[in-house]
Design a protein around this nucleic acid. Structure first.
Length: 219
DNA sequence: CGCACGATGCGCT
DNA sequence: GCGCATCGTGCGA
């Protein structure tokens, strides 16, 4: 049973052509694939169990909605197969994979991983953010902010080419779990579109709630 | 268990 | 200034 001591997957890195397709196809196709982060000697990663598709100018939930190219979203319009990382809520980084041919905006948010590699390192990175609390393995990367923290991802990864540097997606057999679809999590606009994909019954899927973001009351 | 809320910093109007 | 592709904690059931 090699999994306990495995430090990196033996499978092939996905080619750029995998990402140069329509965003929904890529979001669906990434389920079950293996995301790997390499920071020096530290290798962490796991199986992708939840994704969301973010489309171009006609998608009200996308950073590319109506605004055109800005400093933040420019990577979404660039070549496919790169990481689009942004910072939000003052605390959290989000990892996306750029899709569609160059010039067309699109990205897939990777929302949850089933941890496979470097579990101890992921625990350490996550513990620094949640001091004191005991962390279950199923809570290591069951949400996009947790996933980025566990893999050590920050803005330095924005625009990096997947498979050539510190981040890569490896091929894997098609998942045995059925793929379920729902509205996207945490959006005020565009949550009604069925663009979230996850492996039904997998315990590492996030518990984020689907629907309109509740209005925040101010004091 | 579920729901409610504050933290926190940057992009955009 | 406002809002955000979130998270952890606190509190009640």
């Amino acid at each position: 049973m090699p999994s306990m001591h495995e430090t990196e997957p033996r499978t092939h890195i996905l080619p750029g052509s995998f990402f140069a397709r329509d965003t929904v196809t890529v979001a669906h196709g990434l389920l079950g694939k293996i995301l790997v982060s390499r920071r020096g000697d530290t290798v962490t990663g796991g199986r992708i169990v939840e994704t969301e598709a973010y489309l171009g100018t006609h998608d009200p939930g996308s950073h590319a909605a109506t605004k055109g190219i800005t400093g933040r979203n420019a990577v979404m319009y660039g070549p496919p197969g790169r990481a689009y990382v942004y910072f939000t809520y003052g605390n959290h980084h989000m990892l996306n994979v750029v899709t569609e041919p160059e010039g067309i905006a699109g990205a897939v948010l990777v929302r949850a991983l089933e941890p496979l590699f470097g579990v101890d390192a992921m625990m350490r990175r996550r513990a620094s953010r949640a001091a004191g609390a005991r962390l279950r393995e199923r809570d290591l990367a069951n949400g996009p902010g947790k996933l980025a923290a566990a893999l050590g991802i920050d803005l330095a990864d924005n625009g990096s080419v997947l498979g050539t540097g510190t981040l890569a997606v490896h091929d894997a057999p098609d998942p045995t779990e059925p793929v379920a679809t729902s509205g996207r999590v945490g959006l005020s606009d565009g949550h009604e579109l069925e663009l979230r994909f996850y492996l039904e019954g997998n315990p590492y899927v996030s518990k984020g709630r689907v629907g309109p973001r509740p209005a925040r009351t101010r004091s």
